[in-house]
Design a protein around this nucleic acid. Structure first.
Length: 476
RNA sequence: GGCCCUAUCGUCUAACGGUUAGGACAUCGGCUUUUCAAGCCGGUAAUUCGGGUUCGAUUCCCGGUAGGGUCACCA
């Protein structure tokens, strides 16, 4: 039987978490939840130069917001604590000693400048730089102050299987005597992530495709340690919306929290992210579903269906997915969400349908307000009388029409003054005219004062009988 | 440049080697109660190219082309 699935998400606290990182976390989480496994959050903070204060808190905030939970991590501890690499230095030293004892590690005898010189020389010669070509004959004793390098056990080609990319291979030039411990005493990612994965019993390593090129190095290290590597899962890149470049912070990959601030629903972003590079199989009836709740996603997720090629970020699709998720909100949730974005004077339940069908994310409400689309609710509009004219119908005729409309609407009692009744009476009146527009347009405009607005019946219901008639009177 | 990876509508993708190459987003057109939005209906639109293998390739193999990744005391 396969052992229990144990995955990890191992970000480095070097800045904000962008959507690319987030998708990696999502797939690792989905894999764990799908298999009733464990997800470990591990902080890889071995680069003290690039570390950014507050980044860990930010990462946790993003994961919490979108709904990715972890079973072990720095905040909740667990059987493999600590979960922050800078607190596990002794462990790496232990493994380093093991490698030294086995003849698989040695102190780098050169200065940084010398190594740079070697690299430059190789570049000038048009060759790839390999440190192992400069490997000393005999190894000095490592006193812990020098950088410690790995000695590749065997220069050979590697073939391995990746759960997404399938069979992969690389030639011997992918192997080198890479740095295990830096001169500042901290281990490199290449070294400590492997130690931790072994120690924490990780069964599946999920990470970006950019690591494929380094995997032979990891494989040779596992070999030197006498350990079996875990299942490797490399994810295709997310590409930027304009070009075909990997989506990185430089080319506009946004802080995941910005999506929260713009009023995207966490489940919608999760849904969209999951679909960027993965698609579920069509169901028995051949239906290709695209809108999934968190639970549904866990149910249908299959690692085998992750794509190999990079997927381009698509804001339009994200907006559509978000709108679909908004539609699935309960009336109570919808109300709360919308009210968060409304000033006090607009917090009225009657406006919810009008707003809902006009937004794809909640920040759109701000734009609606800016454009004055909700002003009709606050005050009677002011407008030049010409605006009431429909096509080339005479103003006198328009006035008559509005008067008739008022008469009709007076017949509806205040309690029955709803959209349906207003529509029924107004439509039967309109049908008597040659064109409905010459009645409906002036009414709509008199009520809203907007070129683009909800239909007059909806507005009438929102305003109520008195205000509706008062605005029509004013128009007359 | 070396090594590696990838290739279906504009985009995300579906398709035991046999389908009129399907769906979704976007786009275009129509319908619905005037405008907008929403909704419904419909249209345009793709297997990178060249060789094989095969009765038959989107699918398997080889090559070209294009794109991407990677070559740190960063992860």
């Amino acid at each position: 039987m396969e052992p229990k699935v144990v995955t990890r998400f191992a970000p480095s606290p070097t800045g904000f978490m962008h959507v690319g990182n987030l998708r990696t976390a999502l797939y690792a989480w989905l894999l764990a939840r799908k298999n009733n496994g464990t997800l470990i959050l591990r902080i890889e903070d071995t680069d003290k130069e690039r570390e950014v204060e507050g980044a860990i808190t930010h990462i946790e905030k993003v994961l919490n917001w979108i709904g990715i939970n972890w079973d072990e991590g720095p905040d909740i501890s667990g059987p493999h604590a600590p979960y922050t690499q800078s607190e596990r230095l002794d462990l790496y030293k232990k493994y380093a000693q093991k490698l030294i004892d086995g003849g698989f590690a040695y102190p780098d005898p050169y200065t940084e400048e010398e190594v740079d010189g070697f690299r430059e020389k190789a570049e000038l010669a048009g060759k790839a730089f390999l440190f192992r070509e400069y490997r000393p004959e005999t190894f000095a004793i490592w006193d812990g102050t020098k950088t410690l390098r790995f000695k590749v056990p065997e220069i050979k080609s590697y073939h391995w299987n990746d759960l997404v990319f399938g069979d992969l291979s690389a030639g011997p030039e992918a192997l080198d005597d890479f740095v295990l411990i830096k001169s500042d005493g901290y281990p490199t990612y290449n070294f400590c992530h492997i130690v931790d994965d072994i120690e924490m019993g990780i069964t599946h390593v999920v990470r970006g495709q950019e690591y494929i090129a380094s995997i032979p190095k990891y494989l040779s290290l596992y070999e030197a340690l006498g350990e079996k590597p875990p299942h490797l899962v490399c994810l295709p890149h997310i590409m930027g919306k304009d070009g075909k470049k990997k989506l990185g912070k430089r080319d506009g990959a946004k802080d995941a929290m910005e999506y929260s601030e713009e009023g995207y629903l966490p489940e919608a972003l999760m849904n969209f992210l999951a679909l960027l590079g993965w698609h579920p199989a069509p169901d028995k009836d051949g239906i290709e579903k695209e809108v999934f709740s968190k639970e549904e996603l866990i149910k249908v997720f299959e690692i085998e269906r992750i794509q190999k090629s990079g997927a381009q970020w698509n804001d339009d699709k994200l907006d559509w997915v978000n709108k679909e998720h908004i539609k699935k909100l309960s009336p109570e949730e919808l109300k709360n969400k919308i009210f968060e974005w409304l000033p006090e004077e607009l917090k009225n339940e009657k406006l919810i349908p009008v707003i809902t069908e006009r937004i794809s994310k909640f920040a759109d409400i701000k734009d609606m307000i800016t454009r004055g689309e909700l002003d009709f609710f606050l005050r009677a509009p002011a407008y030049p009388k010409e605006k009431l004219i429909y096509k080339d119908v005479l103003l006198e005729k328009i006035t008559t029409n509005i008067k008739e409309a008022v008469n009709t609407l007076e017949n509806i009692s205040e309690n029955d003054f709803n959209k349906e009744n207003v529509k029924d009476s107004l439509m039967s009146l309109a049908d008597k005219l040659q064109s409905r527009g010459e009645l409906l347009h002036p009414i709509r405009f008199a009520l809203s004062g907007l070129d683009k607005s909800p239909d007059p019946f909806t507005i009438a219901e929102i305003l109520g009988k008195n205000e509706t008639i008062s605005r029509l009177q004013k128009a007359i």
